[in-house]
């Protein structure tokens, strides 16, 4: 299900490279990152930062253009660029974020890592920003893991992985400064993994999307259950007397 183009390994960093860079980190950096809101950017000043400051090469391949086939979308519109090591790390993160449960596949099983790889390998502005920050997050996770447990993220046990993520996965408004950037980018990655999961057939079913089916005759509208639920809401909000009359 995954394949990293071997010709493009130079786009990303291997874990070995990132660990080497760890020793060269400088204090203090201000890098634009995505905040909790996916569309707004903010500068998080990371004093005494351990946020990776290496140069990440942008993607310079062509996009799909202004007239791609909408009937047969290109299955592989541009080369995927994550290295095997990065794929392994993202795969683990997708599995932690949306695990398989109750007979439902999780983000790992539906191939979210492919979606992320396509996303961070795309030549468009939003995706390039995400690429820059997510690749740094992957490096940071390994470095943080080494700092805390003397081993990169995938080499430590599950409870250690959770302990590390717990520091950046909650309450972004009250997080210590050193962790603000990793937390913001983790949030962005989390949104992307959720999107990939709910876009999939299994995820779409699970979230309860019931559309995209042809209906003959008139649109049936809300079910009795949905109408009864609305009546409850109107009552609760004191709006029953204003209910819509066609």
């Amino acid at each position: 299900m995954t394949n990293s183009n071997p010709n493009n390994s130079s786009y990303g960093l291997t874990r070995r490279q990132s660990l080497k860079l760890f020793g060269m980190m400088l204090a203090s950096a201000a890098v634009p990152v995505l905040s909790g809101c996916a569309t707004s950017e903010s500068k998080v000043s990371a004093v005494a930062s351990d946020w990776p400051t290496l140069t990440i090469e942008p993607i310079s391949v062509a996009g799909y253009g202004q007239d791609p086939s909408l009937i047969m979308p290109p299955p592989s519109p541009w080369p995927k660029t994550l290295t095997q090591q990065q794929i392994a790390l993202v795969s683990r993160l997708t599995d932690i974020l949306v695990p398989a449960s109750n007979g439902q596949p999780g983000a790992l099983q539906i191939g979210a890592v492919d979606v992320i790889d396509e996303w961070v390998s795309a030549p468009y502005a939003q995706q390039q920003r995400d690429r820059d920050s997510i690749l740094r997050l992957l490096i940071w996770l390994d470095e943080e893991s080494v700092r805390r447990f003397d081993q990169p993220f995938l080499a430590v046990n599950e409870s250690e992985q959770f302990a590390l993520l717990d520091n950046i996965a909650y309450d972004r408004n009250n997080i210590e400064q050193r962790l603000q950037q990793p937390a913001a980018v983790f949030n962005r990655l989390r949104s992307l993994v959720l999107a990939a999961y709910f876009c999939s057939e299994a995820g779409s079913r699970e979230i309860g999307y019931q559309g995209n089916v042809a209906i003959s005759g008139d649109y049936p509208g809300p079910t009795e259950e949905a109408r009864a639920h609305l009546d409850g809401i109107l009552d609760e909000l004191g709006l029953s007397e204003y209910a819509y009359q066609p």
Partner: peptide, 29 residues
């Protein structure tokens, strides 16, 4: 509305795992 899921998931999320999925499902629509 309950739109077809796409690249943007609505909600201000926290954590991971089952509780995360539940939060996304609660926010849907």
């Amino acid at each position: 509305g309950f739109r077809e899921p796409g690249a943007w998931v609505s909600g201000d999320f926290s954590g991971y795992g089952e509780s995360l999925k539940d939060e996304a499902k609660a926010n849907y629509g």
